[in-house]
Design a protein around this nucleic acid. Structure first.
Lengths: 341, 341
DNA sequence: ATGGGGTGTCGAAGCGCTTCGACTGGGGTA
DNA sequence: TACCCCAGTCGAAGCGCTTCGACACCCCAT
């Protein structure tokens, strides 16, 4: 293994000079700089990460804490992780992957051992036990999602309240008067997951504001559960003509179920999903949807973290505005009466 | 930050003694050991990872290289990654996440800078450009999948040749005489991805061996592509009664397509998928399937790597035997003639 | 009583890098 | 001409840990 001393000897300079050439932290004459760079290339020198971290107190590694629990939508998380890694690399950082089931201790472990310089934590619950730990940790962190008490934290998320509301507005604009939100599995709500709760809030508030009926129900992933949930929903509320779905894996089977129950989409039943664009576009009919900008969130998270590492300031809460794309699955409500109030 | 010197002072011993207590590499009297342990707890001491890595030449970090490309099935990879992280933690290691698009250079970077002790590389192509790099690297690695020339490497994979064959055997046993393999998107084949190629081989060999007709076609992910592919397939081979599917995201839409084309599953068309069990079970009808044991592969990969790190020997190639679970989507072929030969 | 072999502990020497202070020499200013 | 300043470079001191060899000390066999 070639060390900085080897490079220094080869270039006929001191080791510290090599270091300064590499880091650019002091001015070095063009002549010397080029000579050193040639030696670096000639010897194939790579600085030893541990030595560098030890001396500089910076590991150039970010922790990414990913949930691996039931009901989480996997492809979105993967997109997200990919964005984090890619963006981190742009800033010359690497990413250490942690699973959420290490819990708060896992965060303390990697932080206090200086394995990482900063943390990105996904899937934050409204009352998340990791939050107090993050507050005390001697390094910056960014949360994806945000807890009830976000004091002193940096949080980034899609504005799910607005997302829920957008869906309602879209359907209400099309004349639908009775809507349902088909949500995530109940376990996700029970865990007090922020995005699920907030969509629900946005949905309910918007329904109220628009003076339309809005009912909500969780939905598990199995086909039978979907069938049962939808059947019961339509039995109890036969006048529902608009469905908002926040549950990516059930989308395919749901379309099936509706067909089975004799509801055509969109003629009898309009559908708006909250999901990744490619999923919406893959369906038949293509779904109107509010997309989840996983990539942008991941980018943003890393950029905020880097800014904080460099001592900069970032907003405490960044809420990305949701965008609804109307596709084939939503249309004018079948008219039964034409009163508008 | 509390250091080993603080602990040593607190316990009234030398720093080296603390180190030996922590590592267990020398015998320490019970008395001293307990005193040190108390001090460690009292001060909340955590060894500094960089210092440890620098001194011991071991970072206790494994690299995991994940593909983020088109046509890869995401949930399986996620399961896989989760298994790797979980198992690595069991052996007191962490996992650094790399994306495949850093290419061979990424591997060299993390290896030569001693950021990691070993590597797990997924999604190996038959002629993978990373393979020669891995051979030269001064640290162990495990490949998921295996290239044509696997000399000097450690590879783990599901036996996809056997998987393809199992599917054929299952259908042939049920009396089907004309089968098709609906594969991954063509990009995956063009990349010479091992698992896709090998399934194809197994499928073709088994069809030959059983004396049944076996045709193969790639299939893209969009609904239209699926519809078109299947329609064309059935036009050209109207006597096909058995379908093998190795393309997880199309499974839902495919069932739709078959329904549209007037083929009932399994009465008119038997289906066997190569996919995760939960996906198979979620469909209606539930699919007969060969499952992809992502978790076992992940475990196995890490365990092999740890063994190698400790100087142990591991088999060059571990092929996990595939298991076919018969569910509702496959049944006796509709009889048109009863000759068996 | 003496020697030998464990057992338990210590001190010091690195691991490979960054960074600080100090030094040199050349150019500009007074 | 004397002075100062700055650009460019060097040497040395760590960063916090592991590990090697050395050293007591005690117990047992002689």
């Amino acid at each position: 293994m070639v060390t900085i001393a080897d490079v220094a000897r080869h270039a006929g300079v001191a080791a510290s000079t090599v270091s300064y050439v590499l880091s650019g932290k002091r001015t070095i004459s063009t002549d010397t700089r080029e000579r050193v760079q040639r030696s670096v290339r000639a010897l194939g020198y790579r600085p030893n990460a541990s030595a560098r971290a030890l001396a500089s107190q910076r590991s150039n590694v970010l922790a990414l804490v990913i949930p691996l629990r039931t009901g989480m939508h996997v492809p979105v998380m993967m997109q997200f992780a990919a964005a984090v890694v890619t963006t981190a690399r742009r800033y010359d950082h690497d990413v250490l992957l942690l699973t959420a089931d290490e819990g708060p201790d896992g965060l303390e472990r990697v932080a206090q051992s200086s394995l990482v310089d900063a943390l990105v934590v996904m899937d934050i619950e409204l009352d998340d036990e990791r939050v107090p730990v993050l507050r005390e940790l001697p390094m910056p962190s960014v949360l994806i999602g945000y807890p009830d008490d976000a004091d002193g934290l940096t949080c980034i998320d899609l504005d799910f309240v607005a997302a829920g509301a957008h869906c309602v507005d879209h359907l209400a604009d099309l004349g639908h008067r009775s809507l349902a939100l088909l949500g995530t599995p109940s376990a996700v709500y029970e865990r007090q997951t922020g995005f699920a709760q907030r969509t629900l809030t946005g949905f309910a508030e918007a329904a109220e504001r628009r003076g339309v009926v809005g009912v909500e129900t969780p939905c598990e992933h199995t086909f039978d559960a979907i069938l049962h949930t939808v059947r019961q929903l339509l039995d109890e509320h036969p006048d529902i003509t608009g469905l908002v779905v926040q549950n990516e894996p059930i989308i395919g089977p749901l379309l099936d179920v509706l067909r089975r129950l004799g509801r055509r989409v969109p003629e009898d039943m309009s559908l708006v999903a909250i999901c990744a664009d490619d999923v919406a576009e893959r369906q038949v009919p293509q779904l109107s949807s509010v997309s989840i900008p996983a990539e942008r969130i991941g980018d943003q998270a890393v950029e905020s973290l880097i800014t904080k590492l460099e001592g900069g300031d970032v907003p405490a809460l960044t809420l990305l505005p949701p965008a609804l794309t109307a596709r084939e699955s939503s249309c004018q409500a079948p008219h039964r009466d034409l009163t508008t109030a």
